[in-house]
């Protein structure tokens, strides 16, 4: 049997080190990158304290900030599956939170979440003129 001239007994440990480095490189890069992005790109909107005037919201205001999507889905299922319409509607949110730019779009833009609520549901217009286009995306101007 012909013996390999590249992978010899002598340089085996050197090859092992090179392979290990190649495998671990992406993990290292992402670890460093994550650390950098955490410092640099955390949107300020998530760190703002909840205004005390929203304390009388339909749920606890901190819960609303982090779980409003679940709360809305809960209410939705109650309404359309069981006909229980005793809680707020999406348009009803706009009775207090009149500025959709500030209330909805700012955080969702920071979190890269595309909302498709407003293609079908009416939300009171904000100060800036807007036109709803298919898919619920919002075009300012």
């Amino acid at each position: 049997m012909k013996r390999s001239t590249i992978l010899t007994e002598k340089n085996r440990s050197r090859w092992a080190t090179i392979f290990a480095a190649i495998i671990l490189l992406p993990i290292g890069i992402s670890a460093i990158g994550l650390d950098v992005s955490r410092d640099a790109e955390m949107p300020d909107v998530f760190l703002e304290p909840v205004d005390s005037k929203w304390e009388n919201c339909i749920r606890d205001s901190t819960e609303m900030r982090f779980r409003h999507m679940d709360v809305l889905k809960e209410i939705r299922d109650k309404v359309i599956r069981y006909g229980i319409r005793d809680e707020v509607t999406l348009a009803g949110c706009g009775d207090c939170h009149q500025n959709r730019d500030q209330f909805c779009d700012r955080c969702h833009a920071a979190a890269s979440v595309t909302l498709d609520c407003f293609g079908c549901h009416y939300y009171p217009e904000s100060a800036s003129e807007r036109t709803a286009i298919p898919g619920g995306e919002v075009k300012n101007g």
């Binding site: 348009a91 498709d116 293609g119 079908c120 549901h121 009416y122 298919p134 898919g135 619920g136």
Partner: peptide, 12 residues
């Protein structure tokens, strides 16, 4: 068209 804002319309 969106005559009744109280009721949602349907998207495409």
């Amino acid at each position: 068209e969106w005559p009744n804002k109280e009721y949602p319309r349907r998207s495409h």
